[in-house]
């Protein structure tokens, strides 16, 4: 395996280097065991494509998304203003993140508080790496596999990014199937709006189970996700349906990583 060096912005600046992008890892990507695999897969992709990147490490704090969606505007703005001070301190221009919640908050909610950056979701960045030829994939691993993509709400409806993840998936030589509710009509995985951190209200069913059922209707081998929270919710759904031997929930970064055999 290649030895991949992960640098912080602070380190690189000390060496007089200015990285091309900041990889915003996010809390899930840093701490959650499942999400860390996505982080590592994306770091390998960046490395493979020779992208000069850095992370903030311990200087990266929660963007404040779950606090804001829970109604705590104070906490959100405390987080935002603290992060903006760090980001502006390093004069950061371009941010790529594997979390649609971080993506949305950094892109849409930081500018009014003084943080203006070019923010990309990792599927958008991977698409541009592929189209610029900086990254190549051999779809062989996934040939003939059935893949369905679950739109994260904060990537899709919230920011109208529907095509980037699909265009990346098309490179895999697999068979892509859309769920009956997809894109603008995609059903939430159940984690948004800070639901990830609480028990759900009484009802007939959990949202993630319903979404998993919709995904299973496409008879997939793989459910592709683009969000660490959707990933957790759908993985739990697959376990609930006792399908973990037949269906995998994988992030697009992981799929590309496997396809390019990094």
């Amino acid at each position: 395996m290649n030895n991949i060096e992960i640098h912080t912005f602070a380190d690189l600046l000390a060496q007089g280097k200015t990285p091309e992008i900041l990889f915003w890892v996010g809390c899930a990507g840093s701490f959650d065991e499942r999400a860390k695999k996505i982080t590592k897969a994306f770091a390998k992709i960046l490395n493979q494509a020779n992208v000069s990147f850095a992370v903030l490490g311990s200087e990266e704090g929660c963007t404040g998304d779950p606090a804001k969606r829970a109604g705590n505007e104070f906490l959100f703005q405390m987080q935002a203003l603290t992060n903006i001070e760090v980001l502006n301190g390093y004069n950061i221009k371009k941010i790529v993140t594997t979390c649609p919640h971080c993506f949305n908050t950094l892109k849409n909610e930081y500018p009014e508080l003084g943080g203006n950056y070019d923010v990309l979701h990792h599927t958008q960045f991977i698409r541009s790496l592929l189209s610029e030829g900086r990254l190549t994939v051999s779809g062989g691993v996934f040939k003939g596999k059935r893949i369905t993509f679950h739109d994260p709400c904060y990537l899709g409806r919230a920011n109208n990014v529907y095509e980037a993840p699909r265009e990346v998936l098309e490179k895999l030589d697999a068979q892509l199937f859309e769920m009956k509710s997809c894109k603008q009509k995609g059903l939430c995985c159940g984690a948004g709006g800070a639901q990830m951190f609480k028990e759900s209200e009484p009802g007939k069913q959990e949202v993630n189970i319903k979404r998993t059922e919709q995904a299973l209707e496409t008879k997939p081998d793989i459910i592709a996700a683009g969000c660490p929270f959707c990933n957790t919710m759908l993985s739990d759904g697959i376990k609930n349906k006792k399908k973990e031997d037949q269906v995998e929930v994988l992030d697009i970064a992981e799929l590309i990583n496997q396809a390019s055999d990094l």
Binding site: V25, C27, S30, D32, K36, V55, S58, E60, P66
Partner: peptide, 17 residues
């Protein structure tokens, strides 16, 4: 600085893996 009880200082531990 994270919604879970992890130390912010450990945010980059994943790189060791």
């Amino acid at each position: 600085g994270a919604p879970w009880p992890f130390n912010q200082m450990d945010k980059l531990n994943w790189k060791n893996e």
